[in-house]
Amino acid sequence: MFSILRSIWLTFLHAFHKRETVGYPEKKPYLPPRYRGRIVLTRDSEGNERCVACNLCAAACPVDCISLQATEDENGRRYPEFFRINFSRCIFCGLCEEACPTYAIQLTPDFELGEYDRQSMVYEKEHLLISGEGKYHGYNFYKNAGVDMGVKAKGEGENEEPTVDLKSLLK
């Protein structure tokens, strides 16, 4: 019985507490850099697309809202021909970012994605691609991979020995 009255009293006292609600949108809350908001595609330090169209983000996506097609440039460099995210389906779980082997796909603290038209929630590569490196600087997948796709020649990558000379008897 007393506890009921006490509850009522304590609840009443909350009338004099500070309010937790933030007056968004007049006041913008602070969001940490690793907040999981709008997804972007980044570029490497040389300004080339980081995405190698490996499809891992699409495979990791639990709502299957990422769709892309791989293609190659004249050097054989893989990049996405199109890259589409249906944000009306996206749940901002960040699994795509975790799956990405090249730091290409990153989530940003921008969460203001409201649209009147659902069709506007479909983002193509031109909407996703930014000019910078995003959160992770300095990584260039093609320098670490074994393939020669116009970024480095065979045997000249990080962690690579020069190519084997098959005609030599000295090895």
Binding site: T11, F12, H14, A15, H17, K18, R19, E20, T21, G23
Partner: peptide, 11 residues
């Protein structure tokens, strides 16, 4: 709704 919010530290 206003009162409930008041006692729940909302608006």
């Amino acid at each position: 709704r206003r009162l409930l919010a008041l006692w729940q530290d909302r608006y």
